[in-house]
Structure formats: C-alpha cells, structure tokens
Simulated assay, not measured.
Amino acid sequence: MADSVTAQARTGGRSGPRRKEEIFTAGLELLAEQGYDDFTVEGVAQRSGVNKTTIYRWWPSKSELLRDALLQSGTLAFDLPDTGSLTGDLVELAARVQELLAEPRTRAVVEAALVGAVRHPAMRELVTQFLEDRLGRHQPLFTRAVERGELPVGLDPALLVDAVAGALWIRLLVRRRPVPDDFTGQLVALLADGISAARERAGRRSG
C-alpha cells in the first residue's frame, strides 16, 4: 500500500492527475488485448500519448503501473450497496459484479488478469492486492451486518465475497453461460442458510 501512495505522489505534478486515468485506461486495454506477457510500458505510452520516460518516472515497472491501474482506475469500480439488510446487500453486490463482467471490455480485463495470475507470480500478486483492496472497500457492508445481528462477530467476510464473486466468475468466464434472473437470489439464499447456521453456532458457544 505504501508503494501505491508513492506512485500517487509521483503523479501529483501538474500533468499527473490530468493524464493518469488516460494511462490507466490504455494500460488495462492493452492488458486485455495482449495479456501480461506482451504488455509493455512502451505500448501504454503509444496508446495514451504520454512519453514513456514520463511513465517510467512515475512507475518504474509494468507491474507497478498495472497495480495502480487495477486499484485506482474506475474501470473495475462500483458503489457499495446499502439496502438495509445483509441479503439485500449481497444480492446487489452480486448484481454489480455481474454488470461488470457482462461488459466486454471489463470482462476482457478480468480474464487477462486471472490468466496472468496463474502464469506469473508478479501478476498473481497484483490480483491478490486488488482483491484485498476490494474486500477492504466492502468492509462497511459487513460491519453493518454485524451491528444488525445478521452476521456473527468474527466471521471472515472474504468467505462471502469469494462465494458471490467466484460463482459469477465460474458461470460467466469459465462456463460461458448466461446468468438467469433468479441466479443471484438463489445464490444469496444458499449463503443466508449458511450464515444462519454459523450465527446459531456462535450463539451456542457464547451461551
């Protein structure tokens, strides 16, 4: 995370904020088109119109550039739902992940990142950092659920996020099948049953 702050400081000059999103957009487009193997900073410079020496000054390596593109670009971002209930929030969360993966450009970025993560330790680290960052951004959703008594204290929210996102990734990216209208509702219902059982177990231990 400190490295990310450093990169932000590098882009804090007069031209940095104005061009940063253009560089990130170009980087994610090239990752989707070429994959991690053929991704180059020179290619990003050509696509974005920013001098490569400037990009290297801000991000000394392609992995650092891709890390900040994944973490800071609006391409993979969405607003956190707040429906007033955990099940409602999970349904909305699943729907927003589905919307991202349904968009061809975003889907291509996610696929390239996952393929690269399997083959390259550097890309695997980038994807891990991205997932940890998103889990941190989702934390308020689970904090509210604990406060409402819907989640037992100490339950790892990553289990729920991985279950929701993983089911959609498998359905859309691996099986290449459409998502039925009731898919997310059924998925969250299954998770809700598991959450209820975990809450009961936690209650028995505390009693």
Rank of each mutant, 00 (worst) to 15 (best):
A2K: 08
D3F: 03
S4Q: 09
V5A: 14
T6Y: 11
Q8E: 10
T11V: 06
G13R: 13
G13V: 10
G13H: 14
R14A: 12
R14M: 10
R14C: 01
R18W: 12
R18A: 15
R18K: 14
K20S: 14
E21G: 06
E21R: 13
E22R: 15
E22N: 10
I23Y: 07
F24K: 06
T25R: 15
T25G: 13
A26G: 10
E29H: 11
L30C: 09
L31D: 06
A32L: 09
Q34W: 02
Q34E: 09
Q34Y: 04
E42M: 02
V44N: 06
Q46C: 02
Q46W: 00
R47Q: 12
S48N: 07
S48K: 05
V50T: 13
N51L: 02
K52I: 05
K52E: 13
I55Q: 06
I55W: 05
W58Y: 12
W58D: 05
W59N: 01
P60K: 04
S61A: 06
E64Y: 00
L65G: 07
L66R: 01
L66M: 15
L70W: 04
L70G: 01
Q72N: 12
G74Y: 10
G74W: 08
T75D: 15
A77T: 07
F78W: 13
F78C: 10
D79W: 01
T83S: 15
S85T: 15
D89M: 04
D89Q: 04
V97H: 13
L100F: 03
L100Y: 03
L101F: 02
R105S: 12
R105W: 00
T106V: 10
T106R: 15
A108Q: 07
V109R: 02
V110S: 07
E111L: 13
A112T: 00
A113C: 06
L114M: 11
L114T: 01
A117G: 15
M123W: 01
L126A: 13
V127M: 06
V127D: 05
F130E: 03
L131C: 05
E132H: 09
L135K: 03
G136A: 15
G136M: 05
R137E: 14
H138W: 13
H138M: 14
H138D: 14
Q139R: 15
P140A: 10
L141V: 12
F142H: 09
F142D: 09
R148V: 06
R148C: 05
P152K: 00
G154R: 10
P157G: 01
L159K: 00
L160W: 01
D162T: 08
D162W: 03
A163S: 11
V164T: 12
A165C: 09
G166D: 06
L168P: 03
R171T: 04
R171M: 04
R175D: 08
R176K: 11
V179E: 01
D182L: 09
D182Q: 09
D182Y: 03
F183W: 03
T184K: 00
Q186N: 09
Q186Y: 03
L187P: 04
V188W: 01
A189V: 02
L190D: 15
S196G: 08
A197P: 00
A197F: 01
A197V: 04
A198S: 14
A198I: 09
R199Q: 06
R199K: 11
R199P: 00
R201N: 09
A202G: 07
A202L: 04
G203D: 15
R205A: 10
